[in-house]
Design a protein around this nucleic acid. Sequence first.
RNA 1: GCCGAAGUGGCGGAACUGGAAGACGCGCUGGACUCAAAAUCCAGUGGGGCUCUGCCCCGUGCGGGUUCGAUCCCCGCCUUCGGCACCA
Length: 817
Amino acid sequence: MERYDPETIELKWQEAWRREQAFRVPNPAEPGRSDASHTYVLEMLPYPSGELHMGHVKNYTLGDVLAHVRRRMGFEVLRPMGYDAFGLPAENAAIREGGHPRVVTERNIAAIREQMHRMGWAIDWDREVSSHEPSYYRWTQWIFLKLFAAGLAYRKEALVNWCPVDQTVLANEQVIDGHCERCGAEVEAKSLEQWFFRITDYADALLEEMALLESWPEHVLTMQRNWIGRSEGAEVVFRIEEPATDLPVFTTRPDTLFGATFFVLAPEHPLVPDLVRGTEHEEEVTEYVRHASARPVAERADPEKAKLGVFTGRYVVNPVNDERLPIWVADYVLMEYGTGAIMAVPAHDERDFDFAREHGLPVRLVVVSADGEVEEGAAYVGHSEDERLVDSEQFTGMSSTEAKAAIVDWLESRGLGRPAVGYRLRDWLLSRQRYWGCPIPVVYCDECGIVPVPDEDLPVLLPEVEEYLPRGRSPLAAAEDWVRTTCPRCGGAGRRETDTMDTFVDSSWYFIRYTDAHNDEAPWNPAVANYWLPVNQYIGGVEHAILHLLYARFFVKALNDLGLLGFREPFLRLFTQGMIHYRGAKMAKSKGNVISPDEMIARYGADAVRLYVLYMGPAEDDIEWQDTGIEGMARFLGRLWRLGLEVAERGEAEVPADAPLVRRSHETIAKVSDDILRRFQFNTPIAAVIELVNDIYPARDDRDRNGEVRFATETAVRLVQPYAPHVAEELWERLRRERLWEDPWPEADPALLERETFELVVQVNGKVRDKVEVPVGLSEPELVERAKDLPRVRAHVDGKEIRKEIVVPGKLVNLVV
RNA sequence: GCCGAAGUGGCGGAACUGGAAGACGCGCUGGACUCAAAAUCCAGUGGGGCUCUGCCCCGUGCGGGUUCGAUCCCCGCCUUCGGCACCA
């Protein structure tokens, strides 16, 4: 018999699919309102810094299965692909290898595209985009200018995260524990003028509109909530006597105002120099501020390290009791959060407590637990219905919860405070001092200031430069002819912006571009975008839980507010797949534990690789790659192949309506289709198909069961198609000579699934006493009668009454006697 | 510290979320075919026990609880993984 040769089969079908553009989905001529007949399946686009790895294979195979199943269920499925092509890795590779980043990138893209074809993924290649192409980044620039015009992109001088290795600034989201997300170098603080997106304006929308999402993993939502870090409290105005100034603070604990014993400013607070100028404290404070800003970020943020600080010699007035509180400067207070100033309540805040102890400042208790117990040597941080205020004038005796509202009311009526909300989220810093990115389309003019490049002059093309190596300023600055330009507004001399955009800007809107990839008059046609979007199912790695997924949500909301899109959330359902580990660690070239997809395809075929990455475990979990696991899948495909060929050779036969294998096939159909749709769990449905094939196999030689075997084999082939499309297509052709992937998803025959009898289990005192097959449809008293007749039950009942019956229709029934 | 997820055979994991735990795969054991190997096929495979064609105990991290019935629900622990963390 013809041997199972995956390579021949797979290349044959891949060629056919490519030739026929088999998975192309045209846009509707007149897109209407969204309805249930179409769906958008999307996986996170790859970063072409090298070839595809096993993580990609898993990611795109998950999407591929879903796309196949949805298509066979009758949906029109949009399933595009592209490349997130700008960015540091390509640029660094170019510097290392001495080529142009574009050449390196495009070489990688070509290789990735071939790998994708070789995996047999059902992609609409007509919509392929790459973020480094002018036809794409023209619109990235266009969107930037829309946001700029709306006041959502702005430029300011700020303390930024500077990576000394990559020689560029990083967004807060790209700093992990004080280190660069990409290269791991310790991040430095630097003051620079940079471009920001005003994502903080959307903090509440990003939280509240989570309600619009259909299905996102809870942990991703939690991570985003933590990242946004909303906390409710109050702004309270403290007054400095000399020089007379208002100093507002943000606090979540207005109930502890009477416990404030000192006041702290961040070292970077702009008022610090004014406070001490010309006083005896000036030298000490100035020296401290210099020391604090030089202190490494990681050390400053370590709660274990001693809390350093100095007294300024000045005082503020506590608005609730007119007490004078000494003003200190300390680096445990952060300029970036709240107002850069705090009221310190050592009795009820651990950090303030530590600081007070370190510097001998008083501790005043104003909140106690319901039973009045006080813990010595630590701050008491409870604040709920159960805690009561003490020594707080007219608020004494109130619960913490009541007092918060009452004190803020009291302050507000005197103009000394108001309810306020604090966020951890910072604005998104998007400037990068690197070459390989999307140029920021603005011109600086001495007369007109910052001038946007007019739409008709877009794109601002990335210039050719000799030297990509970053030197602390953007390599674009070296392209002097390019930098020197005329001001679009006044026609005078102007200079181009030389920073490029963070690549996360490029990937914050690519899913919209796919809907209208060839449009050269607009980034998208709103009717078409609104037809396909939002994405029905998004699939990708959990490492993007904050960065990409937060940015993309922000973009869609902003573009919606600008009237450019008709929806508020980009991705309705999100699935985050787990990583593939090998030899106890995450696969990485540096660890030498990489399994190459190409090698696996060469040895076992794409179908076996696909089947194994799906079958290895729950798709959302991190799973260890097992070399022998893929061999099991290859064995299964070989068995299916032999079975298919034998059945095909034997020809048509009568299918008995209710033979065991026919019934079994319908059970498998029910199991497979159900499971796929409910969760992203491919282990069970694949196991069900394997089980079916295992059941058919021993019966394959039985001539009398020819029709039964044929029916079951065809069912197995149809069911396995989304997972192993090549072998399924080839077998189907031999069995039927039709096209399988256009075949509708099989439906189980409910008549065959309906059980005629079920098992009655009788227990006495929790012990199984007997079981009997009884027909469906008996009434409860009839069931009780049946149970009574069982000999063993009789022996044990011995005169006792039957006290309870539970009947679960169609399921197992227990009678407790 | 706060938040989230998860603990099931030798291993990856199933159990349609309250109905006979361990599907399926890997590994292992025995057998068939073969001069032999590979490939393939058949049988067995949670632990313990018995009067062994069969049957009985124990078993889903630990301790309780609800229920006729719990891997699943509730309470209290333990462990692991992930996120956030001088955020006032």
